[in-house]
Amino acid sequence: MRIRENNVEQSDAFDETGNRQFQRIKQTAPAFILTFVIAIATWIVLSGKFDMFHMTLGVMSCLIVSFFSHNLLFYNTDIRRLPSAWLRFLYFFPWLIYQVFVANIHVMYLVFHPHMMDLIDPRIIQFKSRLKHPMSHFIFANSITLTPGTVTVHVSLLGNYSVHAIDTLSGEALPGDMEEKISRILDE
């Protein structure tokens, strides 16, 4: 608390407050605009009315929302690298859907098998991932959970994953191919 006050006093003393504020605005403006575009697109899809009253209402509420939460969605990311990252994510997504579909068929086979209790072998496996960016941790953990047969139990900040796998076949595929593809998205 005392350190923060000291900082404020120092910046006042150097009379750099205006310059620093300008730097902050310059840093946060792209995230603000992107959040605003996403919010207004969602508003148009949800509302479906294009007259003056509803559009003004939408622009006002989207401005308020993106003012308060512009650093929520694009936290600590370099904006210039975002379009290529999204292209790579779009390249990754159909592969993920295909993996989810194959694993779904496998779990369906397990569910309808008459001797299911002999086939399944639930265990908690642990491994260490080499991903660094928090966003790729998020994508990786959610992809593991979305693929049936494996559920992420816990992820630590250092990248230690513990995963509950329902049988050995779906457990031994981790981390493998999926981590490779996700590490390529954010270019680590």
């Binding site: 779904n104 779990v107 369906m108 569910v111 399944i120 959970t145 979305l146 049936p148 559920v151 329902i166």
Partner: peptide, 13 residues
């Protein structure tokens, strides 16, 4: 734990 596998994911699919 194993009930979560069909509940969360087969429903999503």
């Amino acid at each position: 734990y194993s009930r979560l596998h069909p509940a969360g994911k087969l429903d999503t699919m």
